[in-house]
């Protein structure tokens, strides 16, 4: 795959949950490949909606979304889902994990769903790769535990492992630190940077907490790129 200069390029995007009331207008959003980008905006400013557009879970009424070299507005729904699953890792604010699976099963999921994620593994088997990553994040003793028995901080680290397994090109984190204590945030961020570097992934980090901002190479204020409607 040819590496596009922009990991994400949104142009003149308009989105609304129904056609008459657009909630988000983005004139232009550029995320350069390989960068760590901090995207900030107050709560309720449409950050998660924007991420829905980038991942292709949502489709805009107007405009184009080029993500990792493909205009996802021109793709079919299953193709967009495949594109997202095989090329992107996603970390939510909390409750990232499938509650009825173990740590091992959760982390392995992307590799089971997508061949490309399997092909990009460092180890030869999914199990070995999961063990490698989970150990990298210091959670090896929890491998076969039910995820409900883990603390929030541990769950967030498992979410990192699942986001980066099989080296996706783009990792998106939506307020992943807001459920953590202040002193755990720095550690979490450090870990996230390290594994993203190892996976050579572009990182889009969304937060309303600007105290984390200085650690990122690029900053984008949602206010500057969009004319919020909601």
């Amino acid at each position: 795959m040819i590496t596009a200069p922009e990991a994400v390029y949104l142009k003149n995007v308009v989105f609304g949950y129904d056609l008459r009331t657009p909630v988000l207008r983005v004139d232009e959003l550029v995320v350069a490949t390989g960068k760590r980008v901090f995207l900030y905006g107050p709560s309720g400013s449409g950050k998660t909606t924007l991420l829905g557009l980038i991942t292709g879970v949502l489709t805009p009424q107007q405009g184009s979304c080029t993500v990792l070299g493909k205009d996802i507005t021109k793709m079919s729904a299953p193709a967009r889902d495949r594109h997202r699953g095989s090329e992107m890792g996603y970390i939510f604010q909390s409750f990232n994990l499938i509650p009825y699976l173990t740590v091992r099963q959760n982390v392995a999921l992307p590799c089971h769903v997508h061949k490309r994620r399997r092909l990009n593994m460092v180890a030869h088997t999914v199990d070995k790769e999961v063990e490698r990553l989970v150990a990298r994040l210091g959670l090896e003793v929890y491998l076969d535990r039910n995820v409900k028995k883990l603390s929030t901080g541990q769950q967030q680290r498992v979410a990192i492992a699942r986001a980066v397994i099989g080296k996706p090109s783009l990792v998106i984190a939506d307020e992943p630190t807001s459920s953590l204590d202040a002193d755990r945030r720095a550690d979490f961020l450090e870990l996230l940077f390290e594994v993203c570097d190892e996976a050579q992934a572009t990182l889009v980090f969304v937060s309303h907490d600007r105290s984390l901002m200085e650690r990122f190479e690029e900053h984008i204020a949602l206010r500057d790129i969009s004319r919020g409607c909601a």
Partner: peptide
């Protein structure tokens, strides 16, 4: 609902 959202980010189709 949360589980469904997670599965969607993992690339599972709505179908």
């Amino acid at each position: 609902r949360r589980e469904i959202a997670v599965l969607r980010t993992l690339g599972l189709h709505a179908r």
